[in-house]
Design a protein around this nucleic acid. Sequence first.
DNA 1: GTGACAAATAAGTCTGACTTTTTGGCTCCG
DNA 2: CGGAGCCAAAAAGTCAGACTTATTTGTCAC
Lengths: 233, 233
Amino acid sequence: MTTPGRGLHGQVLDALGPAITAGEYPPGSVLRTDELAQRFDVSRSVMREAVRVLESMHLVESRRRVGVTVRPRAAWNVYDPQVIRWRLAGADRPHQLRSLTVLRSAIEPVAAGLAATHATAEQCAELTECALGMVANSRGHRLEGYLVHDVAFHRVILAASGNEMFARLGDVVAEVLAGRTHHEVMFEDPDPTAVTLHVQVAEAVREGDAARAERLTREITVGALQELDILAP
Amino acid sequence: MTTPGRGLHGQVLDALGPAITAGEYPPGSVLRTDELAQRFDVSRSVMREAVRVLESMHLVESRRRVGVTVRPRAAWNVYDPQVIRWRLAGADRPHQLRSLTVLRSAIEPVAAGLAATHATAEQCAELTECALGMVANSRGHRLEGYLVHDVAFHRVILAASGNEMFARLGDVVAEVLAGRTHHEVMFEDPDPTAVTLHVQVAEAVREGDAARAERLTREITVGALQELDILAP
DNA sequence: GTGACAAATAAGTCTGACTTTTTGGCTCCG
DNA sequence: CGGAGCCAAAAAGTCAGACTTATTTGTCAC
């Protein structure tokens, strides 16, 4: 994904972040900067920078005379792409995947509706192209090719909505789709109904039919939710 | 809000963050750590910590031999509550408020539907209490009292949805509602229709009627959107 | 028990020296 | 004239050590 080791403090984060989000240090646990610095064999300055970042994600809280205490889950910045990635890599991946899929089911239909009225000609073209790519890869175990176009499709929809909050969820959706394809048990070929729905959404957006785009996208997300229920009821 | 000056680096952030999000340094601008440290009269270590936090928000990128460059808007972590607060305090407040209100309109109806099936007895009681408080403050310029209960109401809905991604938007909604009340021109008394809708949502959740809770909440958010269109078309 | 005071502790801050990477220019050769 | 390669400058990155400050905890007197 992003650059893994952007400096020493980044390497420390790549080790500490997953550990904390995985619950390895339960909420209330107290860490000490100096001890951590020793453990990771870095200077205190580097360690302090890492702690500052964790603090900005609300994963920990640093207080004088106390130390660095792990904050409860409810405080975490769960929208931080970094935090999402750490959690998806950890033990509560299924839980995380479900939360994100529910989020998608709320956002994407509305985004598609907006896209129908805001999309540029270019975006419509891209969308159609993506849908076409999905169709082309919908049979014969071509899951990777399918995934690429699926991700691109949803990215375009979110971007075309014209809402920056929606657009910023492109990465999240990408992670969810990738996670579903790679780690969850996925049926050999994608659901043909879903493929058709994507093509139809592209149509609706192109024709500027907001209501139809929204309804069709809702069907897609309902499908995604049902798929989750089948895999992990 | 949160603690304003949690250390020197926090004070630096409170100055730099708003400046960057306000577009005072356009994307591509290059800052140098040492120069910034001088300007804010802090040591380089403190300045570096501040830069690290800005970097984790994707507001800036630090590269050797180049300096600290401001990243384009599209890269910013717009879901970071801190970033939201900075932007709401700045010049593109109206734009930000609109984005967030659209986000609300997508999330809250779905959250309310989920709340209808997931809410505990306690949460139902809280909800009813909030709705009651809104009614009690709906007349006679009691905007502050109304706001408190309005915020609490939406927080409970989001929390009761049982989805952590939704729950985490409580702060965002709070900011939006507070912003609307304090800075936008608000009508003397809240819209009576909205008040009634809140009471009915509480009812629907209590009765476990998901579809009705979702529909009613959608009416509330549609109202919020229309209000925006009236104020800033 | 309660109050104030003192000691211990860990984060916070500053400074200065050093390292590493990147870039931009420069020369030299084709 | 143009490209390859080398050199030097610039800025971030790293480290070590000394010092400051806030907070907690424990103790002692009242």
